[in-house]
């Protein structure tokens, strides 16, 4: 009794911790944790004629087994995977390439290029969508003229309107917009590599290619891994570009439907379709789980094996 009292006297309650953590924690709890938990709970209910009722996992079962919902869900998921694959295959390698080029000491006007390439990332998606629709428009667009002038005119098509090419075209637009992010992150890491390591490899007789693959690439792998995980999360939450260009019905024939647009239609409804907050919450929960599982797999299998170097 005496002892504990004495320790209390010796260690006063750490008020300062709470004072500093409090505001951030409060905001985080109210605007992030609470809505997330509420969504998870909401997805276990069903609302009919203003009465909500606990139904367990029924919404999820409907979502993955009922033909009306499941075909749309799997379609959106598969489109989303393609969308992600495009970004991984194009956006990140191009970002890496640009970063390497930018960090080359021989390149003049490097900071101008950097700013220009990063510019689209800062623009609103609505503007990007609008501008690209105009560029690609078969009526007013300049892309057809451009293709004719380089002799490829016969390959021009209404890419954004065709079932086979709409998603790919949108992926390209998105890659074009966001390529600045991997570029900047990798560029920053490249600048951090000490010159003496590079100099040492040159002295040892390594060609620039060898220097890149054996020295630089291993050193920037952690950043590439981080860029990949950011791409994954961003792609599975993607919504704005599709909504701005193709609308919530993500045509033609749902070929550009992502989980985000599918969620939007389910939760808010569309035209004559009444929205369902509980079914929408179920879709949102599944999106959350998909992202969670993806990130966890990544952490377990990749992140742990990557070696980090301290300079």
């Amino acid at each position: 009794m005496m002892f504990s009292k004495r320790t209390k006297e010796h260690k006063p309650f750490p008020w300062h911790l709470w004072v500093f953590l409090g505001p951030g924690l409060l905001i985080y709890l109210t605007f992030s944790v609470y809505p997330l938990l509420d969504t998870l709970i909401l997805s276990l209910y069903e609302e009919q004629a203003g009465q909500s009722e606990f139904v367990g996992l029924k919404n999820f079962i409907t979502l993955v087994t009922d033909e009306n919902w499941s075909s749309a869900f799997w379609n959106a998921l598969s489109n989303n995977l393609q969308f992600f694959a495009f970004h991984m295959l194009l956006q990140n390698p191009i970002g890496l390439l640009l970063a390497v080029l930018l960090s080359s000491p021989k390149l003049r006007l490097a900071s101008s290029y950097r700013t220009l390439i990063f510019m689209p990332t800062m623009l609103s998606v609505v503007i990007i969508g609008f501008v690209w629709q105009l560029i690609l428009s078969p009526i007013w667009g300049i892309s057809e003229e451009f293709l004719y002038s380089i002799g490829l005119g016969q390959y021009f098509d209404a890419w954004l309107g065709k079932e086979g090419s709409a998603l790919v075209t949108l992926s390209f637009i998105s890659v074009w917009q966001f390529v600045g992010i991997p570029m900047m992150l990798i560029y920053a890491t490249l600048l951090n590599i000490p010159d003496d390591i590079i100099d040492a490899s040159t002295v040892d007789g390594a060609s620039p290619m060898q220097t890149f693959f054996h020295i630089k690439l291993p050193l920037i792998l952690p950043t590439i891994a981080m860029v990949s995980i950011l791409t994954f999360v961003a792609n599975f939450n993607a919504f704005e570009l599709i909504y701005a260009v193709k609308g919530a019905l993500a045509g033609p024939n749902f070929s550009t439907d992502l989980l985000g647009t599918f969620f939007y239609r389910t939760f808010f409804g569309f035209q004559l379709q009444q929205g369902s907050s509980t079914m929408g919450a179920a879709v949102a929960t599944l999106m959350f789980l998909i992202i969670l599982v993806g990130v966890m797999l990544f952490l377990f299998f990749i992140q742990r094996r990557i070696q980090r170097f301290q300079f």
């Binding site: 009306n68 309107g161 019905l249 045509g251 569309f270 035209q271 004559l272 379709q273």
Partner: peptide, 24 residues
């Protein structure tokens, strides 16, 4: 007629566009 799932109005948008596109 547009109260249920699948929603008839949404379906009409989709199939009419596809019929004109020639994909259906």
């Amino acid at each position: 007629l547009s109260r249920g799932t699948p929603n008839l109005e949404n379906q009409l948008w989709n199939v009419s566009a596809q019929v004109i596109n020639g994909t259906m």
